[in-house]
Design a protein around this nucleic acid. Sequence first.
DNA 1: ATCCTCAAAATTGTCCGACAATCGGCAAAG
DNA 2: CTTTGCCGATTGTCGGACAATTTTGAGGAT
Lengths: 243, 243
Amino acid sequence: MTSFAKINTAPTYRRLYDAIETEIMRGRLKPGAKLPTETDLAGQFGVNRSTVREAIRLLEQTGLVERASSRRLVVSKPSTDQLASGITRALVMHQVSFSDLWAAMMAMEPAVAEGAAHSITPDQIAALEQNVSDSRACLNNPKQFCELDHQFHTILAEAAGNRVLDIAREPINLLFHPAVSKVMTQLSQASSRTLEAHEQILTALKTHDAMNARHWMTKHIDDFRRGYEHAGFDLNGPIDIKR
Amino acid sequence: MTSFAKINTAPTYRRLYDAIETEIMRGRLKPGAKLPTETDLAGQFGVNRSTVREAIRLLEQTGLVERASSRRLVVSKPSTDQLASGITRALVMHQVSFSDLWAAMMAMEPAVAEGAAHSITPDQIAALEQNVSDSRACLNNPKQFCELDHQFHTILAEAAGNRVLDIAREPINLLFHPAVSKVMTQLSQASSRTLEAHEQILTALKTHDAMNARHWMTKHIDDFRRGYEHAGFDLNGPIDIKR
DNA sequence: ATCCTCAAAATTGTCCGACAATCGGCAAAG
DNA sequence: CTTTGCCGATTGTCGGACAATTTTGAGGAT
């Protein structure tokens, strides 16, 4: 009995996508390389231009190609932002609880702080000092303060120079933004406690004191949970994403 | 000099995508809901069916819709797998180093182990016991053993019941797979050390001893780094994804 | 009433051809 | 040397067409 291989019944546009994706993943199409025009692709693959266009939409959403100057398509690495917003969408749809998000943050942020302590540059220290000083000036402006808090953690992640942690961390910070905002608004002492934590972390970073950076970050994140709880929110409830 | 507002020049297919995406994110289209047919959508939005199809390809790749029974489109939550493979692709393209990946794993896996210690069920303990016993039988079959190692960590993540950590962890484990495989093959004692670690972790889980679960997991991950180094690979080099 | 069968209707996947809008480059004008 | 205007190339959108496949529904059997 001869056994037949399964026939690939996937629609043409998807097989086209797969073909181009592998071409990119194998490194035969490097980031920055220009893709042929739609008509060329249609010719090369022997399919209609509409089909090519559908395949391109898939590549586009994956972040593997993007328009250079709104014309020619070029191969690109998926941007951190694109990744983050995709993950954020998914987490929202899965209605993850505050406590799950918090646990993930508790795992990652201290690691980020520790990493940053090792590899932070003077420029980045200066940026953090600026951020802390701006924050001090915004103690009574929850909205702005909240923005600066996010920025603090973003600079830190950049300083740690670990793309993996950065990509994993960003969506969580994005999702926490509304929660941070609520806590800052409702708890008068929240801002000053946050500022104090940031200052302690910054001090540790300046002396490349990884242990203390981690320690204060841990306290900082833990504090946030207490603030959230104290402000009357349910730890096990889903995050809501009002604005 | 009056300043003009930017005109929204985004192509129609993208604005269509945005419209449907918001509809889903706002909860007006819930997962499981059937989307109108292409022709209907074209009618409702007053655009051509080709344009609708391009928008659908974007939704498809985002994981916001999928085909039920290979026909009608239904709204869906992006699957963990889809997310993971997207993140994996991105990490590969960014050529993340072993050490960055390892640091992220070192941050997350102990947290997973700790979480699992609190909420693991008898069924999951049984699954892990099965896994460990299978692993013991495969000590001399690196390929199979490697597979079981991956499975061990996957069950653990499931037991922890934290979707956020799970989504963040899976792509990293996927990327490590080739590295694990290489270490297992080249270092004769790697398999037995891994097995021992798994056994210790399992013992801790059975008594819901979160501290020990975390402790042994930390050792386990750390051990992996030493194994990788000892096998002669460069910690700071990019992961390669041969197969 | 419930179930089954099968043809009709609906839906998707693919193709074709067409055309307006826009971009990049190039040549002419200032 | 900068600005303007034009030309070709390329993308975005459209209309229609048709085969393949799924869904639907009517009619008949149990």
